[in-house]
Structure formats: structure tokens, C-alpha cells
């Protein structure tokens, strides 16, 4: 077995182990630490006896670890239970479209935002000392200073209402005009910090000895920037970005989802939490955890490809 295969296999078992721990914690916390009783809230007119009966039917009166084992046994077979809120709809029917929208949107945001940030960061570094560098950063800072709540409203007001170029709300697939506003809100405010980070990295890299070596070899400015500065400046920003991507699922989109009327993961989770829809929260949290754990490995591998030094040592293990 090659080293890469060994790595992938060991990581696979690590993920399973971690999912087990995370799901146990989420399960126990939801059942014991979240205030309020989901059933009581839902059936508050029923007698205590009826409630007990429902509990018994759901199996909630058993030992918590038994319940957990039962739940996970269903989970690994793809049975996530039923929603309490949406009239016996299966959890998967709710989660699947929401997760799929979130994955599409966040990857689209990454694919647009990452190169944009890197290129502008490199340009800013290249322009350092002239007026263009602070001007670029300054303009980007404006966007990051507007809170997303307002930013969505501004964009809707300008582009959807006044100019009527874009739809006012809703989801119409990844390649529809509907995604313009959500993606703008997701990419633009984060760009300022990304550009500044890349700029700082690039300035640091430009002063490294190997860049001087590259110039001394007689390489053109363009080649030095693209082949020597860019890869060295880009990889420190790629890792946190990839690792944070799953978090964007929930928090990053929340305002857009609510204000622009898209039923994706963030909104679904928020609403489920409000109505104490246990099964949706549980399955959703575990799904997000799994995606986060996988993305972490993807980030490890991506960094390993970009920077050979990262292939040795501990960064490959976790």
C-alpha cells in the first residue's frame, strides 16, 4: 500500500471515530441541555398521560445511550427519522435540498472569491508604495464594513427593485440570476481581509532570498510573480479558507437565506432550533460535522500538493 493510500485509509477511520464522538455529544446535549420540551411545546393542550404515551411511542423514555445507539443504527442506514414540525415529513427530504443549495453556493463563492482575492492581493503587493494599493484596500474595506443584513437590502433595492436586472428573491438553481446577490454578499465583504492577508504574504515572499534567486536567473517579472511569488503566497490562505467553508454553510448564508428567501441549511437549522425539531437539528449537525471533517482532509491534501514540506510530519495525520 502506498503512503497516500495509507494516509487516506487512516483518515477515513479517523473521521468515523470523530463523527462518533461528535454525534454522541450533540445527541446528549440536545436531549438533556436544550431548554424546553419539544413535545410539551407542540402538544401543550394534551394531558401528561398522552404525552407520556407519545414519548413511549417515540422511544424517548428509554436509557439515553440506548436511544443514541438506536439513532446511530438508523443514521448509518440513511434513516434520519421524521420531522416533528413538518407533518411527518422525513428529515432527509428537508435536509437534502437545503444542504445541496448550501454546498453549491459556498463552492461557487470559493471558486469566485479565492482567485479574486489572490489576484487582487498580488496586485496590491505589486502596487505597494503607490496610491493604487491603499485605494484598492480602501474600496474593499467599504464592502466589509457594511453588515450583510444591510448589504443584502441595498443590493435588492438597487439591482432588483430600481434597476430590475435581478430577481427580487428565491432560488432558481445555481446558474440562474438568482444566485448573483447571494454570491456577492458572500464574496465581497470577505474579500478585504483575504486581499490584505495575501498582500502581506506576498510582500513577505517578495523579500525572500529565493525570489532574488529567481530574478538573478534572469526570469521575467511575470514569471517570477506567477511561478514563484504566487504559489508561495497563496497556500497560507487556502488552508483556512477550505477549512472554514462548511461554517459558511450556516452563518455566512443566514442573512441572505432569510432576506432573499432561500431555504438552505442555515435557515433550516435556525427554524428547526426555534421549533425544537430534534431530528432535523440532530441530523443536520452531524451532516455538517461530517462535511467539515472531510473538508479538513481535502484542505490537508490540497496543501500537500501545493507545498511539499507539508507532506511530512503531523499535518498529514489530523
Amino acid at each position: 500500500m502506498s503512503d497516500t493510500q495509507k494516509f487516506l485509509l487512516s483518515q477515513f477511520f479517523w473521521i468515523i471515530f470523530q463523527v462518533f464522538i461528535i454525534s454522541l455529544v450533540i445527541f446528549v446535549l440536545l436531549r438533556s441541555a436544550v431548554p424546553g420540551d419539544a413535545l410539551q411545546a407542540r402538544f401543550n393542550k394534551s394531558s401528561e398521560k398522552t404525552l407520556d404515551q407519545i414519548r413511549h411511542e417515540l422511544g424517548w423514555d428509554r436509557n439515553i445511550l440506548t436511544q443514541y445507539g438506536d439513532y446511530m443504527w438508523g443514521f448509518v442506514r440513511g434513516d434520519f427519522g421524521y420531522s416533528l414540525e413538518y407533518d411527518q415529513k422525513s428529515v432527509w427530504d428537508l435536509l437534502k435540498p437545503a444542504l445541496w443549495k448550501s454546498v453549491q453556493l459556498s463552492f461557487a463563492a470559493f471558486i469566485i472569491g479565492f482567485p479574486l482575492g489572490i489576484i487582487m492581493g498580488l496586485l496590491a503587493a505589486r502596487w505597494s508604495g503607490t496610491w493604487k494599493d491603499p485605494a484598492l484596500i480602501g474600496v474593499l474595506m467599504v464592502f466589509s464594513s457594511i453588515h450583510p443584513i444591510l448589504f443584502v437590502q441595498f443590493l435588492i433595492l438597487i439591482f432588483a427593485v430600481t434597476l430590475a436586472w435581478l430577481p427580487i428573491s428565491g432560488w432558481g438553481g445555481l446558474f440562474s440570476l438568482n444566485t448573483s446577490i447571494p454570491l456577492t454578499v458572500l464574496v465581497l465583504p470577505g474579500l478585504a481581509s483575504g486581499v490584505r492577508f495575501t498582500r502581506a504574504n506576498a510582500l513577505h515572499v517578495i523579500n525572500e532570498g529565493y525570489i532574488r534567486t529567481a530574478y538573478a536567473k534572469g526570469l521575467s517579472e511575470k514569471r517570477v510573480l506567477l511561478r514563484h511569488v504566487l504559489p508561495n503566497a497563496a497556500h497560507p490562505i487556502l488552508y483556512p479558507l477550505l477549512v472554514d467553508l462548511p461554517i459558511i454553510f450556516i452563518t455566512g448564508f443566514l442573512f441572505v437565506e432569510i432576506e432573499y428567501g432561500i431555504q438552505a441549511t442555515g435557515r433550516l437549522m435556525l427554524e428547526s432550533l426555534r421549533s425544537l425539531d430534534y431530528n432535523v437539528i440532530l441530523a443536520g449537525s452531524i451532516m455538517i460535522a461530517i462535511i467539515a471533517l472531510i473538508m479538513r482532509r481535502v484542505a490537508d491534501i490540497a496543501i500537500g500538493i501545493l507545498d511539499p514540506r507539508a507532506r511530512i510530519g503531523k499535518s498529514w495525520r489530523f
Binding site: Y210, T213, A216, N232, L306, D307
Partner: peptide, 15 residues
Amino acid sequence: IGMIFQEPDLNPIMN
């Protein structure tokens, strides 16, 4: 004109 520096600075992420 070739130049050799004090630190043998090679690009760390290129073979």
C-alpha cells in the same frame, strides 16, 4: 552574469 548568495535560497515548493 550569474550570482551565488550566502544562503542557498531555492524556492521551497518547487522541485
